[in-house]
Nucleic acid binder design. Sequence first.
DNA 1: TTGAAAGCGCTAACAT
DNA 2: ATGTTAGCGCTTTCAA
Lengths: 355, 355
Amino acid sequence: MPTQKEVAERAGVSFITVSRVINNGAHVRESTRKRVEQAIRELGYEPSFAGKALNTGKNDTIGVMAPSGFGDMMENAYLMGVLRGIEAACREANKDVLISPITENGNTDYLRPYRQRKVDGMIYIGLRRMNNTILGELANRKIPCVVIGDRPQVNGVCWVDTDNEEAGYETTRRIIDQGHRHIAFHSINEDMYNPNIFGREKGYKRALREAFGSGATISVLRAGYDRESVRGSVLEVFGKPGETPTALFCATDNQVIAALSAFRKLGICVPSDVSLVGFDGFLPSFLIEPEIATNVQPLEDMGRTAVTMLIAQSEQHAAQPHGKVFPVSFIPGQSLAPPRNGQGQNGRKSAESRR
Amino acid sequence: MPTQKEVAERAGVSFITVSRVINNGAHVRESTRKRVEQAIRELGYEPSFAGKALNTGKNDTIGVMAPSGFGDMMENAYLMGVLRGIEAACREANKDVLISPITENGNTDYLRPYRQRKVDGMIYIGLRRMNNTILGELANRKIPCVVIGDRPQVNGVCWVDTDNEEAGYETTRRIIDQGHRHIAFHSINEDMYNPNIFGREKGYKRALREAFGSGATISVLRAGYDRESVRGSVLEVFGKPGETPTALFCATDNQVIAALSAFRKLGICVPSDVSLVGFDGFLPSFLIEPEIATNVQPLEDMGRTAVTMLIAQSEQHAAQPHGKVFPVSFIPGQSLAPPRNGQGQNGRKSAESRR
DNA sequence: TTGAAAGCGCTAACAT
DNA sequence: ATGTTAGCGCTTTCAA
């Protein structure tokens, strides 16, 4: 692997001239520059990153922390969506991307790459909550960091997020506007930290209270992330005799899949018996029938913005902590329709009579 | 960010002693070592990667090239599966992972990270064919490289792949064993290089010829990667009057989704009208009914193995080019069943009469 | 057991 | 316009 020195020798100049040519190179005679560039091409020379980093203290690399547990399709889609944005923005800015932990194993030292000065800053993809040790070190060392999908209130940590509360509200309004009154929301267990889902839940409640006041029927289903437990909670609520919700708003598309499976088992048809709306925008690619109405987050944009913020943050040494909220777009689908009997009376046949 | 020198001052030794302590450190008095370690802890010191890299020529980072076009769910799942394996293995080996291009844009300089000595070697995830420029440079510079999902016959380039031919054969045999005789295979357009799919196609043909000799009915559907074109090819073959295949073996799970959509449109039921088998193992998580029989590749293992091979390759400077073939596992599902009327007579009602 | 000196590839500051 | 010198943080070699 050739070095500046070798290029210099070949071009018959000193190595510093080579350095000048590489770094925009003011004050180099045109003929000299030509010779140097020639030599560079002939040798296939490219500056060594380590030498440069040692001098400048920068290494043009950003680290991505993406701890995630399941590795299921939705999580993959979310991660890759954001990652594509990050990667594209980095490429345009001549940065590289170092990924650290994709799979969470509990004892990963997430910030090591920064301490080793392998990266100039880090992006955290908030599928899990960032723990306090990390947050503390970020603040202490003033490590440039942008969090995607969460809003940590810590000095110097920037974030990029979507307006989940608003999206939850808007979506619920749309369901109400179809004539539904008894609308269930599928959330997650309360002890599972997930600000995105909780935001959506908040919006759901606000919309219902606003529309129906104290007469609002709030029914929140809770389960873990795994589809089995989601399926269970749906079976329980929609399987019991008597009046059941006429619409189900799922906080994730993952839950939609589990709900569809539960509905199939119960003989419930979408949307004639129950309307169904999801969140994440991954479902359309499955060509499910009926098309499931859902919400899509601008993942790639979020990734790109995170990179921009990170670069700004590490360049202006004055850390200006701030965040950016992205809107969520609703994707219509046939799965959202008016309830069969108008105002939320549930007139579907029982599961038994259908099978 | 503290340096060795600062640690040394604090511990009252010279910086070289600190270096010794860090690198396993023989010849250091126990008490000295203690003091140094103490200082390291107090300062939160971690050796700078650049300084070390400059000396050793190694930087304990591997690059991953993963050019891909669509960013659809299946591709994401494949990529992430492999990536998880790579990342886990790297973490165990104290390496970092640098990802280069995820989205292909045609003019990416994939090997730049190596030339800049940011990485010690590279892994290529073969969703697209590696072009000759890259292959040439890999060979010229003797860049350690492992390809996943393809078998480039180039000096010094190792690979990890699955036995697609065998899997195609085995799967077709299973379909034959159910009593099917007219079995279609969904491949891709011939000008689209995809050794995995072509391998499966080869296996499919071998199984049919072996079972039925010259009387074998080989029907290969071709389309692009996008679901619309797949849907079109399925509609065409299964929508035409007269005898149509009683089973469809799709080379990817993506095609399965498109095929299901086409079947729905044609009023074809799976498996009562047509049996359906996929490839990739991503479908089970969708809780589709009926469960689709498919094949799963050991993606994580493949990623891990690629890392092991790469490390071996870059450590023993004698490049020993070789490859490793992983088996594919069949996942049974109700979508594969005997044909309705025994030996492949197609007795289903026409699409029209059903709707 | 410890330290001093040199050098890895590069850039910045200061000559010429 | 070009070159010289020093030094980034570290390891390796040689000396004490």
